[in-house]
Design a protein around this nucleic acid. Sequence first.
DNA 1: TAGTGGTCTAGACCACCCT
DNA 2: GGGTGGTCTAGACCACTAA
Lengths: 240, 240
Amino acid sequence: MVKYKEVAKELRKRIKNGLYPIDTALPDQKTMAVEFETSRVTIKKALDLLSVEGLVYTIQGSGTYIKKNIHQLTDSRIRIGQNVGLTHQVEKKASLTNEVLSFIVRFPNEEECDQLLLHSENPVYEIQRLRILDQKPYSIEYSVIPVEIVPNITKKILKSSVYDYIREKLGLVFGGNRQIIKAAQPDKNDQKYLNCHETEPVLEVIKVMFLENGTPFEFSKVRHRFDMVEISFFSGRNEF
Amino acid sequence: MVKYKEVAKELRKRIKNGLYPIDTALPDQKTMAVEFETSRVTIKKALDLLSVEGLVYTIQGSGTYIKKNIHQLTDSRIRIGQNVGLTHQVEKKASLTNEVLSFIVRFPNEEECDQLLLHSENPVYEIQRLRILDQKPYSIEYSVIPVEIVPNITKKILKSSVYDYIREKLGLVFGGNRQIIKAAQPDKNDQKYLNCHETEPVLEVIKVMFLENGTPFEFSKVRHRFDMVEISFFSGRNEF
DNA sequence: TAGTGGTCTAGACCACCCT
DNA sequence: GGGTGGTCTAGACCACTAA
């Protein structure tokens, strides 16, 4: 693990544990450089990471500050943060559960081979899950994952978090993703599982996830009820 | 202008002009450092910028390469790139025009004061525009801009590009933005201007744009026809 | 194994904030 | 003017790719 990521990790932990009072500046870069026995440039790189993740912002000549909770403003929708490095950060609301609708192994089709850089003989998992919040289904997910890269998936894993399994049990490191977002009319499954009326649209997100080394490990399509999910993100540096 | 941004600007120009053959590596960082009379770290920072913008990707131990056209894949929808630093990059399609539905000056309401960091006495422009592609309206935009920051807007400017005006005529530099994306049912205006049937949803994007120094200069809501616009973006470094 | 990108350092200078 | 972040340099070492 490189140094600036380790520093970022430690700072992330401290912020989460509330070790730094909100609305006050973090220690200045020079001080932190001494504490972490590194150079100021490395501290800066770590802070840049946290800034992209939306945890902190810096004001030149003043200091680095912890962001007040960006998420949860007024709306009761679930808000999915985007520029959030590795953690897929659905807000911890009351009772989030997954129902597994279907879980099979098969060979990939042409598009899947394309997106996941596979041969047609490499088997993949095909997973359909329903996301449920307080008894109310809000998203349906179709996910395709190569068996070779993410082996030994079980129903139990599907009921909690595949991403946690990949990171924590397999020790793989996420690298990034590519996404396409659109609005769509409800199809049969949306009507059946998400209780969408004909006039109630879905927010569709198609995503390819990559490991740190660039290997794609998941090709997924998620359809969200329009009134329960929205996506927020920011690009740029500061206190936006 | 700082050095790494200048280098990035020059490289951007060269890439656009096709000075570097596609599918071949760019000159290596050390060579470029000599050419631009700077250090390798600075070159790296410039390349990082271009990477975030989706223009190039790098492979450690191999080189830096120009990306093939990410946009325009199969779909006939307009695809709006997101991680595209400063240029709002709608694809240059046949005939894109703007129709100005309404253009007035007024005082801001509470939410607008909040988002744009204004006093309620600072006047704002309120702009409604219709985006049209080949005679077909595809998006309706509601935009609020402080008069103080972006003075002298005219109908002529609205017919082309406000962003171009801000950048080129006023010489302001964009810094970033914050966005929220959701799917929504069509409202009266969507039905009227975008010809949305009751069952044809819209993709709604609420956005706050910032200048480089962190000043917000636009608060906007755009509603896109579901079958004509989608949003794509990538996070992470490489050749995704 | 040579070439290339990724990270890191120590020190420097500048721009900006705040008092 | 003192404190703080932003940028830059020159040189070093490591990790990865490609031959």
